[in-house]
């Protein structure tokens, strides 16, 4: 009797979990295993679902594909520029927000707006602000020429100009999350530390370096890790600025390369896509591990 009851309740538990297990199994666990299988199947044909060998050919193809190398380069440039810059600016703004009283709530609300907007839609606004067309130089270029510079086409022009817009837009998009986390961390620092330091006559800069920064370092570190991961997966903001044909614009990212291999005019190669996705995963994993090692030395918990 007791035993039967236990089996019944066990069954009940699994029954409640069933939908979640089913969905996760079909759309996460199985694909996770399958992506490795795909990446080793050589010459996979998605129409006939056949392949003629197994091995590392897909990886070697991807690693020798100039489009992929371009995508890797773009992604790394984007990561290296936007992660430190956005974290730094967010820190400065959060400290400013923390120091004031009037208007704080209003400013916090404004700063959060980009988080709730559609990346594709607002990206178009950035595009028309930076783009040069036949009938207008675009607002930003007028600003530049007004200041005595020469105008550049930021959307179809030289590489560095396109990269600049992309970094600018990326920072604009990721700032809300960082400001939110950092203002939370700053207001979490116990006021008593500040009082004690002020009684001792410690300078403001020293207070910041010795108290504030160590106290919020776990959160900064959290932002750096999530920032790295997010920037490595950049894709839809790039599409928003430069359209879907990213290879032609020389602005593709690793994730963009994966999708291009899978779908669209250049698509139909799930094996190459899988190999590229796994390479991306390995890169992210490595960087995260390095981050964790560095943090052990420098973060005060």
């Amino acid at each position: 009797m007791r035993k039967r009851k236990f089996i019944n309740s066990s069954l009940k538990g699994w029954l409640y979990l069933l939908p979640a297990i089913l969905f996760l199994g079909v759309f996460m666990v199985y694909p996770l295993l399958d992506v490795f299988v795909y990446s080793f199947e050589e010459g996979y044909n998605s129409a006939s679902q056949t392949y003629f060998g197994t091995g590392f050919y897909n990886y070697s193809y991807v690693l020798h594909d100039p489009y992929f190398l371009q995508a890797v380069k773009n992604t790394f440039v984007l990561v290296v520029i936007t992660v430190p810059l956005s974290t730094g600016i967010a820190l400065i703004i959060s400290i400013g927000l923390h120091a004031i009283k009037p208007l704080r709530e209003l400013l916090q609300t404004i700063y959060f707006l980009p988080y709730v907007t559609n990346t594709l839609a607002v990206g178009m606004v950035f595009m028309i602000l930076f783009k040069k067309t036949a009938y207008s130089e675009g607002l930003i270029n007028l600003l530049i020429t007004g200041l005595g510079g020469t105008s550049v086409d930021f959307i179809d022009g030289p590489y560095w100009a396109k990269m600049f817009v992309l970094c600018f837009y990326t920072i604009w998009v990721v700032m809300p999350f960082k400001i939110l986390i950092l203002t939370g961390a700053l207001s979490g620092v116990d006021e008593q530390y500040y009082h004690a330091a002020r009684v001792d006559g410690t300078s403001k800069f020293r207070i910041f370096m010795r108290i504030t920064l160590p106290m919020i370092s776990p959160m900064i570190f959290y932002l750096v890790i999530t920032g790295f991961i997010g920037a490595f997966k950049a894709y839809s903001d790039v599409v928003a600025l430069f359209g879907t044909n990213l290879n032609a614009a020389e602005m593709n990212t690793i994730v963009g390369y994966v999708y291009d291999m899978l779908y669209g005019d250049s698509g139909g190669y799930p094996s190459y896509a899988s190999a590229a996705a796994i390479i991306l995963f390995v890169i992210i994993l490595t960087i995260t591990c390095i981050n964790l090692l560095v943090s052990k030395k420098n973060v005060h918990y």
């Binding site: 996460m28 998605s46 997966k233 799930p270 996705a277 991306l280």
Partner: peptide, 12 residues
Amino acid sequence: PNELVIITNYMT
């Protein structure tokens, strides 16, 4: 990451 499973999901 979603990028890793999306390929098979697309095929499925």
